[in-house]
Simulated scan of single mutants.
Amino acid sequence: MTKPIEKWPDTYVPEVFAKKYGLTLKQAKTIISSNGPSKHGCDVGAAAFIRALVMRGTRSPARRRPTPGAAP
């Protein structure tokens, strides 16, 4: 669940934040909501999010285990 970021004063405008970090609008809103109205907190959160995306892109995906009782 995301917090209502539209009512926070002195926070990033999601469109500006998304453009600054090359994020989608949904990703930008999630980062702003998760890190509160602090621009510094959002900047740090964006850097961590981008590093996580890079790390995820360099690893092979985990093997999914079949769900018990599910058809193959």
Results as ranks from 00 to 15, higher is better:
55 M>T: 13
69 G>Q: 03
28 A>F: 01
3 K>N: 11
27 Q>R: 07
52 A>V: 07
28 A>P: 02
40 H>D: 14
29 K>C: 05
12 Y>E: 00
64 R>P: 03
71 A>P: 04
26 K>V: 13
58 T>S: 12
31 I>V: 05
6 E>M: 05
1 M>R: 12
67 T>R: 15
32 I>H: 00
60 S>K: 14
46 A>E: 02
14 P>Y: 07
23 L>S: 01
35 N>Q: 06
14 P>Q: 01
50 I>A: 01
52 A>Y: 07
39 K>I: 09
24 T>L: 03
20 K>D: 06
20 K>Q: 14
57 G>W: 08
21 Y>W: 15
67 T>W: 09
68 P>V: 09
10 D>H: 12
22 G>H: 03
54 V>G: 09
25 L>H: 09
61 P>F: 07
64 R>V: 13
42 C>G: 06
5 I>G: 01
70 A>I: 01
59 R>T: 14
28 A>N: 03
67 T>Y: 12
21 Y>E: 02
35 N>L: 04
9 P>T: 13
15 E>N: 06
39 K>Q: 14
30 T>S: 11
22 G>K: 03
49 F>D: 01
68 P>Q: 04
60 S>G: 04
18 A>N: 02
43 D>L: 01
13 V>R: 10
66 P>E: 12
13 V>M: 08
60 S>I: 13
11 T>E: 05
9 P>W: 13
20 K>G: 00
18 A>I: 06
5 I>M: 08
72 P>A: 14
62 A>Q: 12
